[in-house]
Design a protein around this nucleic acid. Structure first.
Lengths: 232, 232
DNA sequence: CCTGCCGTGACAGTTGCATGACAGGGCGGT
DNA sequence: ACCGCCCTGTCATGCAACTGTCACGGCAGG
C-alpha cells in the first residue's frame, strides 16, 4: 500500500482529499502546516507528497526545495496543489522539481489518476509467473522449482511461459506452434509432444504422472490451474 | 539530444510547437495525421510523444493504446494535447497510459516544463553502480575492479553501464543495439557478441567462465544479479 | 479387439555463441 | 594538414548445445 503525505492548510480540502484517497486504498498522513514538513517526511518516508504552495506559515516551494536537496528524499514524487494559475507560477513550480502541478479547483478523480501515473512510472517491470513451487521470471529468463534453478532451453522456456500465463486453457498443437514457434515455421505438430516431454522431465516431480502439464487427449495440452493449490 | 514526435493536425499549432521546441534544443519529427502513427513511432523511436486526441482521420486515444500495446514502444512517455477538458476525458486519457494531459489552450513554456519532467524522471539518479568488486561511476566514467581502475572504451562503458543498471534483466542483441548503440545505427547484431567478449576479458576473473555477464542462449545477455552477493 | 493418439528414446541436422584475426576510420597530437 | 594509434565493426571458424523428426511401443476409448 502506498503512503501519501498531504500538506494542505484548508481544513475542508484536507478532509475531502484524505477521505477520497483513503477510499482509493492509499495510506494517508498529513499536516495542515508547512513547519517541519521535511522532518515529517524523513520520519514518515511517504511514497508521494501532495503539497499546497500557499501555506500560512511557510512556502510550499521552499519545502519542495528542501525535499529535493535531501538525498534520501529527493526521489519522492511531489505534486503541487495550488490556486496560483499564472504561467510564471506554473513554470517555477515545475522547474523546482515538482512532478506535477495541479491548479485548484480540480477534479478529485483527476488528481487520483495523476497520482497513479507517478506510481506507474516507478512500477518495477518484474513480470513473474508463479504456480506452487514453480516460478518463472520473464525478465531474467529464469525458472525455479522449489528455489532450485532449472536449465531450460529457449523453446522450452517460451512454451512454459505461454502455458503458465494461461493456466487451465487447453491449446491444440497447432495453436502452440503458432504462438510459441511462430506462424511461419513449418514444423510437425509432433514436435510439441517432444517439448512437452522435455519440459515434464525438468519440472515434474514424477514425469510419468504429470501434475503441472495436463494432456487432453484429442485436443492438446494445458497448464494445470489446480497446480497452485495442489497438496503436498 | 532528445527526439520528440509531434502528432497534431492544426497547422498553426504544429508550426508553433515545432518552432519553440526546436529552439529549446529538441529534435522534432512529426505528422499532421494519425494514420500510421504507430509505424512512424517504430521507425523514429522518439523519446517522447505529443499527441493530439482529436485528429481528422483517427483517434489519439487509439494511437496511445497502440503504442502501449507494442512492447518496444510501451515505455515512451505520451503527453496528450487536447481541447477536451471534461473530467471524463481527462480521466480516460490519463488512465489509458498517458503520462500527462494538457488542455488547450496552454502555455508553451509550461508544456516544455512538463516535457522536461518526463525526461528528468527517466534520468537515473544513481551516480555509481556497484556489484561486488566491480564499481562503475557515471560522472567520472571510470570503472574499478578490486580498486584497480580498468581501461574501457566508450562503447564498452556504455554497454556495461546499461547492463549494470538493470541487473538480472535479459536483453536481446537488438535491444542492446537500440539502447546502447542507438536505433539508427546499422550494425550487425554479432557486434554485441564481440563487445561482450571484450568486456568479459576486462572485468571477469576467468573470461571463459563468466560470473558477471551471463549469456542466455536464444535470448541475449544480462548482468548477473547474484554477482553482488556471490560468496568468496 | 482394434484404432488412433500419445509417450519416449535416439539421431542427424542446424543454430547459436565464443573467439581470434583484420580492415576502415575517427580522433588526438604534432 | 599530416600521421599514427586505438577504437570500431565485420568475418570465419570451431565447438557445444539445441532442434526437429522418426520409429516404436503402450495405453485409452469405442
Amino acid at each position: 500500500m502506498k503512503k501519501i503525505l498531504l500538506i494542505e492548510d484548508d481544513t475542508d480540502l484536507y478532509a475531502l482529499l484524505k477521505y477520497n484517497l483513503e477510499k482509493d486504498g492509499f495510506q494517508m498522513v498529513g499536516a495542515q502546516t508547512g513547519k517541519g514538513a521535511v522532518d515529517l517526511c524523513r520520519r514518515e518516508r511517504p511514497d508521494l507528497i501532495l503539497l499546497d504552495i500557499m501555506l500560512p506559515d511557510s512556502d510550499g516551494l521552499d519545502i519542495c526545495k528542501g525535499i529535493r536537496a535531501h538525498p534520501d528524499l529527493a526521489h519522492i514524487p511531489v505534486i503541487f496543489l495550488t490556486a496560483r494559475a499564472s504561467e510564471t507560477d506554473r513554470i517555477v513550480g515545475l522547474e523546482l522539481g515538482a512532478n506535477d502541478y495541479i491548479v485548484k479547483p480540480f477534479f478529485v478523480r483527476e488528481l487520483i489518476a495523476r497520482i497513479k501515473i507517478q506510481f506507474r512510472q516507478q512500477a518495477q517491470p518484474v513480470r513473474a509467473l508463479k504456480s506452487g513451487a514453480l516460478e518463472l521470471d520473464r525478465s531474467s529468463c529464469r525458472v525455479k522449482l522449489n528455489s532450485d534453478e532449472l536449465q531450460l532451453t529457449a523453446t522450452e522456456f517460451k512454451l512454459l511461459e505461454f502455458l503458465m500465463a494461461r493456466p487451465g486453457v487447453v491449446f491444440s498443437r497447432e495453436q502452440l506452434l503458432d504462438s510459441v514457434w511462430g506462424h511461419d515455421r513449418a514444423v510437425t505438430d509432433r514436435t510439441v509432444d517432444v517439448y512437452i516431454l522435455r519440459l515434464r522431465q525438468k519440472i515434474e516431480d514424477d514425469p510419468a504422472n504429470p501434475a503441472l502439464i495436463r494432456s487432453v487427449r484429442g485436443f492438446g495440452y494445458s497448464f494445470n490451474e489446480a497446480a497452485a493449490v495442489a497438496p503436498v
